[in-house]
């Protein structure tokens, strides 16, 4: 084939134009649909994020089954505590009305660690009007119990003063002032 003086240039330009057009069409086709509705992003992503599954479902769904704990919890000082913080998220327990897993119940030493997360006075910065704190093991000594006692031997975990008040009543101990 005889080529004219500028045939290569023409072919290059043609090639570049085809490349640009194909590229542009490809870009239009493969850009996501809802892109740019509100801004430079995929608008559907908002709804997708809103539809994410909740794993924590507040205390409400716990109470109908666990009525005993519910009764204690809602009247006790620990009523602001979330069930799911100590026991784990609802989603690991019930899915679509079916029990799918056991949630852990803390025992023994775990209880002490759990309680002291909040109630340890050795960690300063725990304002008295927010939370009641104790120093361990001084608190056990003060109360004249064994130093091996775990917190829940005196304080019900769901209602910390429940037993103490009951005991005082039962034994007719008058509150000092």
């Amino acid at each position: 084939m005889k080529s004219s003086y500028n045939s290569h240039v023409k072919r290059i330009i043609l090639g570049l134009v085809i490349f640009a057009v194909v590229g542009f069409i490809g870009k239009e086709i493969s850009s996501p649909k809802s892109f740019g509705v509100y801004g430079h992003y995929r608008a559907d992503a908002i709804q997708e994020e809103a539809d994410r599954d909740m794993r924590h479902k507040t205390n409400t769904p716990c109470l109908p089954c666990h009525t005993h704990e519910a009764g204690l919890h809602k009247n006790g000082l620990h009523k602001t505590i979330s069930c799911e913080f100590c026991h784990g998220p609802m989603a690991d327990h019930i899915t679509s009305g079916i029990k799918t897993g056991e949630l852990p119940v803390k025992k023994g030493e775990e209880i002490r660690v759990l309680c002291l997360r909040c109630h340890n006075r050795a960690i300063h910065a725990r304002p008295g009007d927010v939370i009641k704190t104790v120093v361990m093991p001084d608190h056990l000594r003060d109360k004249k119990v064994k130093e091996t006692h775990t917190c829940n031997q005196c304080h019900h975990v769901h209602a910390p003063y429940n037993y103490i008040d009951q005991a005082k009543q039962a034994l007719s101990i008058k509150e000092a002032s």
Partner: peptide
Amino acid sequence: DDLETSEQIPEHIP
């Protein structure tokens, strides 16, 4: 019926 209320239906959660 208790189980159903404990399911994830946000309307049941206040």
